[in-house]
Simulated assay, not measured.
Amino acid sequence: MAGIKHGAPEVPTPLRVMIYFESTSGWFNTTGEEKTNDILPALNEIIASWKENGSELLGTIDRDILTAGPSGSAGYHACFLYNIPDLQTIADMTHAFRATGLDKYFRLEAVLGRPFFLLEN
């Protein structure tokens, strides 16, 4: 069977980005009080700031229905799908975790792609 011939994929504007989110051992080794009083408020503040940077949240997936504990081979606990205006904004979003120390508790990985042509036109 011959493949479909087409040119190089076009980089979309805005960028389509999947952000993988994983809790690390730092999160699992932290007390409930520290999580409630310090970590979760800082996490909520960062995620709220993403609403102000021109990014559009399209959807989320939390894998906790059929999983518990460390993320295992999948490497993430949740996914956030965004339209994001530019590459610098993605870098700023991930850097916010480093700048606040949240990278001790959570790992982020951004994957750049585009809408799948057979499902989104």
Rank of each mutant, 00 (worst) to 15 (best):
P85C: 14
N83Q: 11
S73K: 07
E33L: 08
S73T: 14
G75I: 11
T67W: 02
Q88L: 07
Q88W: 05
L40G: 00
S55N: 00
N37S: 12
N37H: 11
G72M: 07
I65R: 07
L57Q: 11
E56Q: 13
W50M: 14
E45H: 03
G54V: 09
S49G: 11
L58N: 15
G75D: 12
E34R: 11
P70H: 07
I46L: 15
H77G: 01
G59N: 08
N83Y: 06
Y82K: 14
L66K: 00
D62S: 02
A68K: 10
T60L: 07
G72R: 06
K35I: 14
L57G: 14
S49D: 03
C79V: 13
I46C: 04
S73C: 05
G54E: 02
P85V: 05
A68G: 06
Y82G: 04
Y82W: 10
N53C: 06
S73Y: 08
G69Q: 03
A74G: 04
N53Q: 02
D86N: 15
G54K: 02
A48H: 13
D62Y: 04
N53H: 01
L81A: 08
P41V: 10
K51H: 10
G69A: 02
E52T: 09
L40M: 15
G69R: 04
F80G: 13
C79R: 13
N53R: 01
G72P: 07
G75P: 09
P41R: 03
N37E: 10
N44P: 02
I46Q: 14
L66D: 12
E52K: 13
G32W: 15
W50T: 15
D86Y: 09
P85R: 07
I61R: 03
I47Y: 12
I65D: 07
S71I: 00
K35Y: 12
A74H: 07
A74V: 15
N44R: 11
E45W: 01
P85A: 05
E52A: 14
L81C: 10
G59Q: 12
E52S: 10
Y82C: 13
T60W: 04
C79P: 00
N44E: 10
L87E: 13
I47S: 09
D64I: 04
A42V: 15
P70C: 03
F80P: 05
D86K: 10
